[in-house]
């Protein structure tokens, strides 16, 4: 295995290179940082639900879907990425994911500690310092390889992070911003200043080598690797890949008889997942049950909302729900009348 100390690369290479490495049958540890900011969504996410694409387009912020799990993140040059590509049957690889994370997160934890930041492992895949998250990590299995990616966070642009997310309103955005501020820390926040970048790369290299053993260092991308990354770019930077159907808008319709259907719908609103099971007769709701993991105050009004929707044409649900909200003073942070309507109406 080699250590690829590439330091600053293009934003797209900061993703494509680690996706390409296992595909050319090669292990490696990449240390790199993107030259410009971008948004990166998790493998299973629905980009239109997670990201404010209009804002990103207007501000030239590209959006990328990775094969690694987790959520939408704003990434930029103030984050130092480590990307370990290692064979599943490598003797150092524990088979259980908690053990895997614990083992390889020791490298960034040790790097943080060497800087004087009291970092510690928090199961299953987090690093915290003084109770705040200070590193994001995830894994993808690609072929016979495990791809483990994460970052040291020198500084974090909280404002842009909350701006690139798709949120229902500014109140919700403000809530996300405050929660992020309270729960995510950085090297600069912990130390009051940022150490020289070279020191951070050295520390990461040293601490990973304490786990992996000595590694030969390369500082460039060879032709074979470059060609595979370019080949992957054609697929992973296409709209087809980015807009791949997310799971959260998928619904099912079962026709009981002509004109009578039972629908099962799910929609992930910013405030939580909404589920609806409804019977529809000739386009009119005959019965409906709403559930999910969103907050709805007062909770007992949800049953009243279900009753209010019986007899309503599917295309009219948004107005009815909006009126219901106004009449009863219902509050559901991050879930709007339009979200309920979308749950019901989405194909």
């Amino acid at each position: 295995m080699k250590l690829y100390r590439l330091e600053t690369v293009s934003w797209s290479d900061s993703q494509l290179l680690y996706h390409a490495l296992p595909r050319i049958g090669r292990e490696g540890l990449n240390l790199l940082s993107p030259a410009s900011p971008y948004v990166c969504i998790g493998y299973f996410q629905d980009v239109e639900q997670e990201v404010d694409l209009d804002y990103c387009r207007a501000h030239n912020i590209p959006v990328f879907r990775r094969e690694v799990g987790g959520g939408a993140v704003y990434l930029d040059g103030e984050q130092l990425f480590y990307q370990l590509v290692i064979r599943k049957n490598h003797p150092l690889v524990p088979k259980e994911k908690g053990e895997f994370y614990w083992k390889f997160l020791q490298a960034p934890i040790a790097a943080y500690r060497a800087l004087g930041i009291p970092a510690e492992y928090k199961p299953v895949n987090d690093i915290i310092a003084s109770g705040r998250k200070i590193s994001g990590n995830g894994v993808a299995e690609i072929g016979d390889y495990i791809v483990f990616v994460g970052n040291l966070i020198v500084d974090f642009d909280y404002e842009t992070m909350v701006r690139v997310l798709r949120v229902p309103d500014e109140k919700f955005r403000d809530k996300v911003y405050k929660t992020l501020q309270d729960n995510l820390s950085t090297i600069r926040r912990e130390l009051g200043s940022a150490p020289p970048r070279a020191q951070l790369w050295d520390l990461l290299a040293e601490k990973f080598m304490e786990i992996l053993g000595p590694l030969e260092v390369e500082t460039t991308v060879d032709a074979e690797w470059r060609a595979e990354a370019d080949r992957l770019a054609a697929r992973m930077m296409s709209d087809e890949w980015l807009f791949r159907r997310g799971r959260s808008q998928i619904g099912r319709e079962v026709t009981i008889r002509a004109g009578v259907q039972v629908w099962q719908k799910a929609y992930k609103a910013p405030g939580g997942l909404i589920r609806a099971i409804l019977e529809v007769r000739e386009g009119v709701i005959a019965d409906i049950s709403l559930s999910g993991d969103f907050f709805f105050y007062p909770a007992e009004r949800l049953v009243d909302l279900e009753r209010a929707l019986v007899g309503v044409r599917v295309e009219d649900v948004e107005q009815v729900i909006a009126r219901f909200y106004a009449d009863y003073g219902v509050e559901s942070p991050g879930v709007t009348a339009a979200d309920f309507a979308r749950t019901i109406q989405v194909a």
């Binding site: 493998y43 995830g138 993808a140 299995e141 799971r247």
Partner: peptide, 30 residues
Amino acid sequence: REIVYVEIPPVGKAVTQGQTFMSMESGKWV
């Protein structure tokens, strides 16, 4: 651990014994 996403493969897809054909996510691990 808790499975948060399952990728449902398309009906009709050909599969081979021992070869991977679908994904699941838990703990940010696909």
